[in-house]
């Protein structure tokens, strides 16, 4: 018995060591740093809960949270709706459908930085082909990334474009799982296409929807690359979302204490989402 345990521990040790070094230690040091004032030079100074008080009572974090929620809501709703529509459109469409599926999924495989660089060019207000096309048909060319009212929306669109293929693939898999007899029965009962979808397919797709909702929200809460590459959080902070804000505090302004405290605070919503995600994973459902 003891030997089995010891051996089990032996097998576990490598992963535990990596887990400890790359996850436990950074989390603990983040907690410790969140109670200090430190600019990466010199020694950290103990300030107690000061950083938390400043963040929770100040007016810096509020707009950042609102933007993060807007970004997450737009990205998740857009990619889920788009993924579902695409899945319904290319479901059982043979070889051509297969080619289209692969093309759509391809953008999910490309790195965020690559996607961001591509779209920085496409959306450029002066030299970008999209503004050029608008101008050539006499429409005003919009400054997609330079206008504070448009920039966050532009990033949402780019993010949807990037991840919609993933949502589509999961919906496709779920559609494949639905027994054809159910559709046939609905058709025999005279259900229209919309009624079939609303009363037969949609309820059966619910676990997939719940899964995509939770994982998509967790992922978009952590959005960073697209902001870093395309707007740097600007113009005038219009695209300053949570993780990028933390990055800027830490590595542009060297305010390690507040940045760490913000990370710790962010554990709350992410923890709740992860808990929901685990419920979904166990088939308990959230919807």
């Amino acid at each position: 018995m003891l030997r089995t345990r010891a051996r089990a521990l032996g097998y576990l040790l490598p992963s535990l060591a990596i887990f400890a070094v790359f996850f436990v230690y950074p989390i603990l040091s983040c907690l410790w740093l969140s109670l200090h004032r430190w600019d990466l030079l010199g020694e950290p100074q103990w300030v107690g809960a000061h950083n938390y008080q400043r963040l929770l009572s100040g007016d810096a974090l509020g707009p950042v949270l609102v933007r993060t929620l807007l970004y997450a809501a737009g990205t998740v709703a857009g990619s889920m709706a788009g993924g579902l529509l695409l899945a319904l459109a290319v479901h059982r469409t043979g070889r051509i459908g297969g080619a289209i599926r692969s093309a759509i999924f391809a953008s999910y495989v490309v790195s965020w930085v690559g996607v961001s660089l591509l779209w920085s060019y496409l959306l450029d207000g002066q030299v970008g082909p999209i503004s050029g096309a608008l101008r050539s048909v006499g429409l005003p060319a919009l400054d997609w990334l330079g206008d504070p009212d448009l920039a966050l929306g532009s990033l949402v669109l780019v993010s949807i474009w990037k991840i919609v293929g993933y949502d589509m693939v999961l919906y496709l898999a779920a559609l494949e799982d639905i027994a054809p007899e159910l559709r046939e029965a609905a058709a025999l009962d005279g259900a229209s296409a919309w009624q079939t979808f609303r009363h037969v397919l949609w309820p059966l797709l619910r676990p997939t929807t719940a899964f995509l909702l939770v994982t998509g929200t967790i992922m978009s809460f952590q959005g960073f690359d697209v902001v870093r590459v395309m707007t740097g959080g600007g113009p005038a902070n219009a695209t300053q979302i949570y993780v990028h804000w933390v990055y800027e505090q830490a590595f542009a302004y060297f305010r390690i204490g507040p940045a760490s405290a913000a990370v710790v605070l962010f554990l709350v919503p992410l923890g709740i989402l992860t808990w929901l995600g685990r419920r979904v994973g166990r088939g308990e459902g959230v919807l």
Binding site: P148, G234, P235, A236, N237, A238, A252, Y253
Partner: peptide
């Protein structure tokens, strides 16, 4: 450096954005 990066430059950006 902090006055430049954290205070003046963001103020210029706010004005440029019409805020």
């Amino acid at each position: 450096l902090a006055i430049e990066r954290e205070i003046v430059q963001p103020a210029l950006e706010r004005v440029a954005a019409g805020q």
